[in-house]
């Protein structure tokens, strides 16, 4: 049997950048993503397995000490785990052997990085949340609205956000943010 040619990954928006007003947009590199659902009893073992303390406070996230891995609280029993080095998160969770649901969504979402002094203003063109540092500090995250779509927003620095968006909505997200950046 002839060798099968490996299908190449074609990342949507790969390498894309834009800048307007006081904000820049950058397409984030591919990452592993996991939607993790679990009851309280499983959190300790899942945290150990993932090397991230799963946060339990609304609108908060946690990052691994040694890895480029973070867990975003999305609901009372729901987290979005992102690993920028592409680890097999589903397999890690399986190792915890505690009750949970882990679904790989690495390709479902992609991320747009919004950075610069106008980043919050740019997002606030379509996101009704209070993005002041007081209400939405570094590390804060939320499943929220951007214009007419749903996104997950994570503040990575005072003037930097990661916008996680479903693949097919990313054209809209990108166009919206680029338009909004003009007035940031």
């Amino acid at each position: 049997m002839a060798e099968i040619a490996l299908a190449a990954r074609r990342q949507k928006h790969a390498g894309r950048k834009a800048s307007a007003g006081s904000a820049t947009l950058t397409a984030a590199a591919p990452a592993s993503r996991l939607v993790l659902r679990a009851p309280d009893l499983s959190l300790a073992s899942l945290s150990r397995a993932l090397d991230v303390t799963l946060p339990t406070a609304p609108k908060s996230s946690a990052a691994s000490d040694g890895l480029r891995r973070g867990a975003l609280w999305l609901g009372p029993d729901e987290w979005l785990v992102i690993d920028e080095d592409g680890a097999d998160l589903e397999a890690l969770c399986a190792g915890a052997a505690s009750l949970h649901s882990a679904v790989d969504v690495s390709h479902r979402n992609l991320a747009i990085l919004v950075e610069g002094p106008g980043a919050a203003a740019c997002l606030n063109a379509g996101c009704p949340q209070d993005l002041s540092l007081r209400a939405f500090p570094v590390g804060a995250c939320s499943r929220t609205v951007l214009g007419k779509i749903e996104v997950v927003l994570l503040r990575t620095a005072e003037t930097a956000f990661r916008v996680e968006v479903w693949r097919s909505f990313s054209d809209y997200a990108w166009d919206f943010l680029e338009e909004a950046a003009r007035d940031s």
Partner: peptide, 14 residues
């Protein structure tokens, strides 16, 4: 902002 392409999201498959 909701005019032209931004009036409503257009979803395209991979």
């Amino acid at each position: 902002h909701a005019r032209g392409e931004l009036f409503d999201p257009t979803r395209r498959t991979p």
